[in-house]
Design a protein around this nucleic acid. Structure first.
Length: 423
RNA sequence: GGAGAGAUGGUCGAGUUGGUUUAAGGCACCGGUCUUGAAAACCGGCGUAGGUGUGAGCCUACCGUGAGUUCGAAUCUCACUCUCUCCGCCA
């Protein structure tokens, strides 16, 4: 969440930010509420002070044998008044909280103002898309004819937007997970984490998925647990309500997880293949760092993700999301979009974001510059490093051959136990 | 799933016949004295959040979480969460 003091002291900044995001929000109403709250707070705290003072007199008077009945009467009145005021303050607090948790982050100044993904800013491209000397097939056709992807059986067993990977398809998916993790752990200096795939409500609030986007998440029936939509949620929340040691920063984690998304509102979109599934695999990169380094960390995190695609030889481009396309919690996001031959366009395969203090404030993740210094919120970042299912799809399409077989990119061959082609 | 024990500031830990405890004390940490330097010793400081004030400061809340009893709760009641021990079951 954003800092309430930002709302108070710089309402214009926030108004502009929300306007750019096309988010409607009554800031003046909020400010009035905040002022009312502070007024009541002063009042009730004075009464509590009186109550505390009197409370010390009672045992003293009793000891001295004085009559305390008048004092007790006063205390009773105080108590009633305090309860009444406390209830008012609590009601306002709840209202304020409800509002503040649904305000999106303020975009960084360099984020282009725009309405939709068509206003995103292309930063760079890597390699040209492959030119096919034959009619390329889509990955769902390749996968089915090779017997390595089975969508209809998944439909029978579970439902739409699920997939069975079989044989070398399953092997390829697993090889990609290991390849990506090894790259980030051994070369890029991330510490591996294997997180729980379910979390409780507070964790979902901490990273910003709740309370606003509950319909996007799967909740486990009979429990208060949610299936994670990304490893970002458990990994970021590892440090919730903690003051981190300065010497440990930046903290860098790489985590594999399955990801579960209800995809509410995506009905009819990307219905074929691996692109939009209710369950998919992802290797996620998460960083915790000092505020002044977070934008450098975003650049390096993005490059870490890019290297996956470069090593696999998958042409891609990097775009900076505009204000209209930016995620709720993010201050700035680079998307990596890989060339998907079947779509004949670039498709998102990684999203690298700097949340600044937005998540840290929600989750209470802080650090101290020196022993005497006040705790400050860290900045959190994360990015896909990268989405595994989409990578599999892209490899099948990009490395397909006229005879229907698929070559395995060189760096994956050792993870495939020497297998260099799926046929 | 059953039985029992527990959860207090960065950490250990006292406080649990409700009220002069304002959450003691140790360790760690920070500053100082001493020392060539360090250690030790001694002195002082040392939680978080919110509010208020130009300021020193003052006030309020917080003892796992949430309700409740009471004029007053770390302390009493209830529910829940988590940890530990034992038993059962299980990959």
């Amino acid at each position: 969440m954003i800092d309430i003091k930002t709302v108070r002291n710089n309402p214009e900044v926030l108004k502009k930010a929300l306007e750019n995001r096309h988010a409607k929000f009554d800031i003046d109403g909020f400010l009035a509420l905040d002022e009312k709250r502070r007024g009541l707070l002063v009042e009730v705290e004075q009464l509590k002070n009186k109550q505390n003072t009197n409370s010390k007199l009672i045992p003293q008077y009793k000891k001295e044998g004085k009559d305390v009945s008048a004092l007790m009467e006063e205390m009773k009145a105080l108590s009633d008044a305090i309860k009444e005021l406390d209830a008012k303050v609590n009601a306002i607090d709840e209202e304020i909280e409800k509002i503040v948790y649904t305000i999106p982050n303020i975009p960084n100044e360099t984020v282009p103002v725009g309405a939709s993904d068509s206003d995103n800013l292309e930063m760079r491209r890597w390699e040209e898309p492959r030119k096919f000397e034959f009619e390329p097939k889509a990955h769902w056709d390749i996968g089915e004819s090779l017997g390595i992807l089975d969508f209809s059986t998944a439909g029978k067993v579970t439902g739409a937007r699920f997939t069975f990977y079989k044989g070398l398809g399953a092997r390829l998916e697993r090889a990609l997970v290991n390849f990506m993790l090894d790259l980030h752990i051994e070369k890029h200096g991330y510490t591996e984490v294997f997180p729980p795939f379910m979390v409780h409500r507070n964790s979902m609030v901490g990273t910003g998925q709740l309370p606003k986007f509950e319909e996007d998440a799967f909740k486990v029936w009979g429990t208060e647990y949610f299936l994670i939509p990304t490893a970002e949620v458990p990994v970021t929340n590892m440090y919730r309500e903690q003051i981190l040691d300065l010497k440990d920063l930046p903290i860098k984690h790489a985590a594999y997880s399955a990801c579960f998304r209800a995809e509410a509102g995506a009905a009819g979109r990307d219905t074929r293949g691996l692109i939009r599934q209710h369950q998919f695999n992802k290797v996620e990169l998460v960083k915790f760092c000092l505020p002044e380094t977070s934008y450098d960390e975003l650049e390096s995190l993005t490059k870490d993700a890019e290297e996956v695609l470069q090593l696999l030889g998958l042409p891609y481009r990097v775009v900076k999301l505009c204000t209209g396309d930016l995620g709720f919690s993010s201050a700035m996001t680079y998307d990596l979009e890989v060339w998907m031959p079947s779509y004949n366009r670039y498709v998102e395969i990684s999203s690298c974001s700097n949340f600044e203090s937005f998540q840290a404030r929600r989750a209470g993740i802080r650090f101290r510059r020196g022993p005497k210094d006040k705790p400050e919120f860290v900045h959190t970042l994360n990015g896909s490093g990268v989405a595994v299912g989409r990578t599999t799809a892209c490899i099948l399409e990009t490395y397909q051959q006229p005879d229907g077989s698929v070559k395995i990119p060189e760096p994956l061959i050792k993870y495939m136990n020497g297998i260099d082609v799926i046929k």
